[in-house]
Design a protein around this nucleic acid. Structure first.
Lengths: 130, 130
DNA sequence: TCTTGCCTTTGAGCGCGCTCTAAGCGCTAA
DNA sequence: TTAGCGCTTAGAGCGCGCTCAAAGGCAAGA
């Protein structure tokens, strides 16, 4: 659990580019990452967990400005747990909305695909018009 | 079924702005919309159906370049039905992937929220440290 | 007649989330 | 000693999907 990783290793593990990792740190999504004697970043397992959490927020459509809010609350300590929970509950609602919208859209796609299938079936019945 | 609508009416009905409606036409997502005697656009019910379909594609994450492909196939006539169906089947896979990813992410959010709840519960037990 | 209002066009501008460039440093291998 | 590699920084640039600005036309109402 005392492992450390270079930025390149984190990039491979998370799928984020080193550029993006530095960018996230620059805008404050990541607290200032520890450095070795020559100034290279080294990431810990805890950092990885946090990065993966950030990725889930992004993945589910949270804008970076809101992720920043969340990060700021986190860095203020445990007494912000309530606010963080509220933010997350709001976001959970958002995720559920996305899911139900996707479900509806999926049904529509199914219908549209069936429509095309029937169109193709008709076309086979009348290969060419004489 | 022979109704026609101004761009403003379409904007209200679809939620897209007149700007966006013109933009979509400009880039070829919409075929050139009919005009009245003084050059104003008038949209038909068929146009509305197509716009709503486009919105579903966008909503589900299809990039505009791919929507353009689809539109181009459509304007080439019924013989492209097969290709359109294939595109849509690909996209349906994409939608399903999004849904399962969201479901996973939702579970993670649930856990995180529970974690915060437990944190808050602890804090109430120890309101202040003497 | 004049104002108001909605439409038209082309092309520029914008916000988001990266992504890349340029210049430079320290370590290691040849 | 030198070449090459991987890291560092600040700041510029980019792709996407809009969104707006400027300039102008037509028509209905005062």
């Amino acid at each position: 659990m005392e492992n450390t990783y270079t930025i390149q290793q984190i990039a491979v593990m998370t799928g984020l580019s080193p550029h993006t990792l530095r960018y996230y740190e620059r805008i404050g999504l990541l607290h200032p990452i520890s450095r070795d004697s020559i100034g290279y970043r080294y990431y810990t397992d805890r950092d990885i967990a946090w990065i993966e959490f950030l990725m889930r927020l992004r993945q589910t459509g949270m804008p970076i400005s809101e992720m920043k809010q969340f990060s700021d609350l986190r860095s203020q300590g445990d007494h912000t747990a309530g606010q963080r929970r509220e933010l997350l509950e709001q976001h959970r609602i958002h995720i559920r909305e996305q899911m139900s919208r996707l479900e509806q859209d999926l049904h529509h796609m199914d219908e549209k695909i069936e429509y095309y299938e029937s169109l193709e079936a008709k076309q086979k019945q009348l290969p060419t018009i004489p």
